[in-house]
Write a protein that binds this DNA or RNA. Structure first.
Lengths: 219, 219
DNA sequence: CCTACCGATCGGTAGG
DNA sequence: CCTACCGATCGGTAGG
């Protein structure tokens, strides 16, 4: 999925250009993580990658384009570190758990760029806000799918409110991210894990012996 | 609690100075809600309140001081709109519900300034970050107290993990705030309310008839 | 990709 | 509280 061999004729030139762009965007993501996408500055970024302002500017054409490209680069990291690893887990309950685990590991390593950008741009109409809205909707859909798979697989009760559960899982982890970034208290991460585990256990279809009782209780 | 009659001798002059400062800070909070505390600018703020840059600057002495004063003004609003109304509810489970309700109403009206500032400053060491950390700790303590009161009043099971429950309530509402600010989808607020209600119901000491069964189940 | 520049705005100062 | 100013930096342009 990741490997795609290009015709080697043009390779050198294009590879160079794309590497430069990638290096710029890696630095931009790192800078924006601290300063925000609005605080991201062409001058500071140029200095960080050892390039002139004009030279760097030529890569993007406007600050808006730089911000969008930076957001996309951050989303690529999100996908690589959160979504892809979870996709390797079997669909259903296990994938739900894998998604939460990989998200929390990502939060612990670098903080959730998506959350930071959403809070920064929720009052700034424009292409960045639009993109964030659709990405956040896509994330919710991803979790909903995992919930639906778990129901189809008979791992979660069929009467589970899919949207509601997906919402709670996302909100809990996002809220934990906010608190963790400020406090860096590892207990925060432990508490989300514990809370999520308890929540899933409470609505899981119980194993063998308890099944009859559970069915009666659920009516 | 809100009314305090001052000696009327100096009233005019002092009242004027404080009203000006209050007007400035009200405008600052409004501006910072959109632009962030870092995006808050002395020039823009001066223009908004119809004052010269120099004149406004003299009120605070530095941008840092202006940011801190703005944060404090926003916290005062938070206390007035979220904490105080909930304090009028009887301690325990009802106060927990009142806290969530007033917080969600505040979120619906204006968005949570605390969350926005926390996300903006979680990577910026300094007095603002320090203040945010202590305020967020104070908020957690407030919720924990309400949980403990509910346990003492016999409304929640005595084996409830106080810290864990307080964490989950706060994280869920904060996560919902993030999503709501971006989507403005009223369903988000409904889902938090539903999620919180279900969570509390699940650990509440059940009324009369169910008490024995619940006790056996909890073991 | 560079240098050299533009007008605008930044936080802050001085003098009144 | 004002005017007038400071050096630095902003996003962006031009010409190479």
């Amino acid at each position: 999925m990741a490997q795609e061999t290009a015709a080697s004729g043009e390779r050198t030139r294009r590879t160079h250009g794309e590497r430069t762009r990638k290096e710029i965007l890696d630095a931009a993501v790192e800078l924006a993580r601290v300063e925000g996408l609005e605080g991201l500055t062409i001058g500071t970024l140029a200095e960080k990658v050892g390039m002139s302002k004009g030279g760097l500017f030529a890569h993007f054409g406007s600050k808006d384009a730089l911000q969008l490209a930076t957001l996309d680069a951050a989303l690529e990291i999100f996908i690589n570190e959160v979504v892809v690893p979870a996709q390797e887990a079997p669909p259903g309950l296990e994938r739900m758990r894998a998604l939460s685990q990989s998200y929390l590991a990502y939060v612990e390593r670098r903080g959730c760029f998506l959350t930071a950008a959403a809070v920064e741009f929720d009052d700034r109409p424009g292409p960045i806000r639009d993109r964030l809205q659709s990405v956040i909707e896509a994330r919710a859909a991803l979790v909903r799918e995992a919930v639906e798979e778990a129901i189809r697989a008979g791992e979660l009760r069929p009467d589970v409110d899919t949207e509601q559960l997906a919402f709670e899982v996302v909100a809990l982890t996002v809220g934990a991210n906010v608190e963790y970034q400020l406090s860096k208290n590892p207990m925060v991460l432990e508490r989300v894990r514990k809370g999520l585990a308890a929540k899933l256990a409470a609505i899981a279809v119980p194993a063998k012996g308890q099944a009859a009782r559970a069915a009666r209780r659920a009516k």
